[in-house]
């Protein structure tokens, strides 16, 4: 599983990163977490609001910072 955190490195992106790591730990899962900070790449994924969370190339949230519980649910839903 690949999880991408999209955003130019603002405060919210760091929170999202930390929440994602925590959600993975809680669920006992492992994944490659990639930070994408390049605007061209972010835009190429169709994302217009950062931070955004991408699980297995699916954009599951953008423009907000979901909490640990919500991320865990999103990971379980988009694992395959």
């Amino acid at each position: 599983m690949t999880i991408k955190i999209l955003g130019g490195g603002c405060k919210n992106c760091q929170t999202l990163y930390a929440n994602t790591v925590e959600a993975l730990q809680k669920e006992g899962l492992s994944a490659d977490i990639v930070k994408v900070t390049d605007f061209a790449q972010i835009a190429a994924m169709g994302v217009m609001q950062t931070p955004a969370l991408v699980i297995n190339d699916r954009v599951v949230s953008s423009g907000r910072t979901p909490g640990v519980k919500e991320i865990a649910a999103l990971i379980n839903k988009n694992r395959e």
């Binding site: 955003g7 994302v47 950062t50």
Partner: peptide, 17 residues
């Protein structure tokens, strides 16, 4: 819509593309 300037570039690209 958002007043955070960090979103304006992705929005610019999203609209233009």
């Amino acid at each position: 819509t958002p007043f955070c300037s960090c979103s304006s570039i992705p929005i610019f690209i999203g609209f233009t593309s």
